[in-house]
């Protein structure tokens, strides 16, 4: 269909973080949030607002930030030429639940700090602020993980020349085993590490 290839993949497994196809970091912590906090303390550290985020925003922020730190594409591409597309199945369910519980106790119990995170794209906004990404952005909700859908969307944004590079990811904070993968691909790329949708699937199914 096109010449688009995936240059980098970041995958958060139950106890490991994978950078491309290699194990990169042994994770400690039982819950997803504990593991994310561990990554934040060990690899990022410079964004105190991190501790105010909800689980979904943390997940998107950590993986988006790691991808941008490690990938040359992010450093070498104008922020306005990078598209950022995210997908998941549950939207902002955890923060929705908290907000729902609060207002059931009283209409005036709503917390602005929590309510902001009842929009699933807000975590993407945090990555954009930190990394000065000002290109196309979109959050989509899917019934379940689909490598084909991710692959198709990456192709669509690149071939329609909406961007020079795309950061695209799946982040599901409602599952504690960390069902999360981020990919970085660019237009006219020479690299060819992980170049089919089957490889996205393989990467996700390794663990």
């Amino acid at each position: 269909m096109s010449q688009v290839v995936i240059n980098h993949a970041l995958y958060l497994g139950p106890d490991q973080l994978y950078w491309d196809e290699e194990k990169n970091l042994d994770l400690r912590g039982a819950t997803l949030t504990e593991r994310l906090d561990f990554i934040y303390e060990n690899q990022i550290k410079s964004y105190p607002k991190y501790y105010r985020m909800d689980g979904m925003a943390k997940l998107v922020f950590i993986l988006g930030e790691l991808m941008c730190q490690r990938s040359n594409i992010c450093k070498e591409t104008e922020g306005s030429e990078i598209a950022f597309v995210m997908l998941n199945a549950s939207g902002s369910y955890p923060s929705d639940s908290i907000h729902g519980d609060l207002i059931r106790k009283g209409f005036d119990r709503s917390s602005p700090a929590n309510f902001v995170y009842t929009l699933p794209n807000v975590g993407m906004g945090e990555v954009c602020i930190k990394q000065k990404i000002t290109g196309e952005g979109m959050f989509l909700i899917e019934e379940k993980f689909s490598a084909t859908r991710i692959w198709d969307l990456a192709n669509l944004f690149l071939t329609q020349r909406k961007c020079k590079a795309i950061l695209i990811g799946w982040a599901e904070p409602t599952q504690n085993d960390g069902n999360c993968i981020f990919l970085m691909t660019e237009r006219d790329s020479g690299l060819n590490r992980l170049n089919t949708e089957q490889n996205i699937l393989k990467l996700c199914n390794n663990e």
């Binding site: 199945a89 549950s90 939207g91 369910y93 929009l119 699933p120 794209n121 807000v122 952005g137 979109m138 959050f139 989509l140 909700i141 899917e142 019934e143 409602t174």
Partner: peptide
């Protein structure tokens, strides 16, 4: 339950199992 709450579930309930659809939720 999460499975019956998501936007994708609601849209599928309207369009049927065979429909090809995208759900955009970006504020």
């Amino acid at each position: 339950s999460i499975e019956e709450f998501g936007l994708s579930y609601s849209v599928k309930s309207v369009l049927g199992n065979d429909a090809n659809f995208y759900c955009v939720s970006n504020a």
